[in-house]
Amino acid sequence: MKRILITGAAGFLGSHLCDKFIQEGYHVLGMDNLITGDLKNIEHLFGNKNFEFYHHDVTKFVHVPGQLDYILHFASPASPIDYLKIPIQTLKVGSLGTHNLLGLAKQKEARILIASTSEVYGDPLIHPQTEDYYGNVNTIGPRGVYDEAKRFQESITMAYHTFHGLETRIVRIFNTYGPRMRLNDGRVIPAFIGQALRGEDLTVFGDGSQTRSFCYVDDQVEGIYRLLLSNYAQPINIGNPHEITILAFAEEIIKLTGTNQKIIFKDLPKDDPMQRQPDITRAKELLGWEPQVNRAEGMKITYDYFKTLTEEELRYSEHKDFSKYIQK
């Protein structure tokens, strides 16, 4: 049985990856320091003989006993609210954490896939974004802690690939959504749905003309799975190319939830990208992958999930405290 280490296992995407690899017959070792992850996302796996959980911070030395065939590095804050609250930890998990895991992969002779992001493109000057675009990033802006952590992560991964001959893969993840997202974490979909559930007006930043492209989590996981098992070491975009403006999307949410909230406008945050749309030509040609779930179908599943949350879970989502992890 193949053994795979998944960091960030208790997070939104990490937990779905744990499910996928268990379903595919792997022995999964999940690792998370639970800063932004939640054990509720993986508690259904605790009785499974093919799942182990390590409560550990990957910015510290990482030891895993026994054989290891694959590593998926998904440990990182991924939402603006999170990485603005814990900027140092965000930088450390992208740099020290990635270095530790690359060293582990080298020691175990394991293939490693690292989770990069569309944020490496910054506020892009080309559209849609292709993998050979170098990006337009403000290194010292508020989003720089996340953007540059991911850009460094790609650089050190490719250095290990070229210098040590390590088997590496890099996925550039575009906006992904689905069950297990945390409400009010600053990302568009949970923010809008959270406001709808509370009967609040929907907040659109700027005039709403900025665009995003939303990929349902099952499609994202399938793309990552195919990339890991491919022979391609260069970065690949995995996302849904169907673009929509934020204003139009807010209107879709109001229609989906059957509510009558107004849309209110606030100032656009600094360095907020105006366009997000992946060019997935490379994923189609090399992985035979493209999204299968349309936005209407995926959003209904996601909204139905959020409606099942208890009042306690909604409050926990809103007020998770990171203060004890903040390093000044």
Score class of each variant (00 low, 15 high):
residue 224 I to V: 12
residue 62 V to M: 01
residue 92 K to V: 06
residue 189 I to W: 03
residue 150 K to T: 00
residue 2 K to G: 00
residue 15 S to Q: 02
residue 273 P to A: 01
residue 95 S to M: 13
residue 131 E to A: 03
residue 190 P to R: 05
residue 201 D to E: 11
residue 294 N to A: 00
residue 317 S to Y: 13
residue 59 T to F: 03
residue 215 C to Y: 00
residue 223 G to Q: 08
residue 249 F to A: 04
residue 318 E to L: 14
residue 150 K to Y: 04
residue 146 Y to H: 06
residue 67 Q to N: 10
residue 86 I to R: 03
residue 325 Y to S: 13
residue 50 N to D: 14
residue 210 Q to I: 09
residue 175 N to A: 13
residue 4 I to K: 13
residue 31 M to L: 15
residue 52 E to Y: 08
residue 204 V to Q: 08
residue 126 I to Q: 10
residue 235 P to C: 07
residue 276 R to C: 13
residue 322 F to I: 07
residue 280 I to P: 02
residue 276 R to Y: 06
residue 104 L to T: 06
residue 187 R to E: 10
residue 130 T to E: 15
residue 103 G to S: 11
residue 271 D to P: 02
residue 272 D to F: 14
residue 241 P to S: 08
residue 136 N to L: 00
residue 189 I to T: 11
residue 181 M to L: 08
residue 76 S to H: 10
residue 112 I to Q: 05
residue 156 I to D: 02
residue 63 H to N: 13
residue 74 F to A: 15
residue 268 L to M: 14
residue 146 Y to D: 04
residue 110 A to R: 09
residue 22 I to L: 15
residue 182 R to F: 04
residue 262 K to N: 13
residue 195 Q to W: 03
residue 143 R to N: 11
residue 166 L to N: 07
residue 299 M to K: 05
residue 184 N to M: 14
residue 265 F to W: 11
residue 231 N to H: 13
residue 269 P to Q: 01
residue 98 T to E: 10
residue 106 K to S: 09
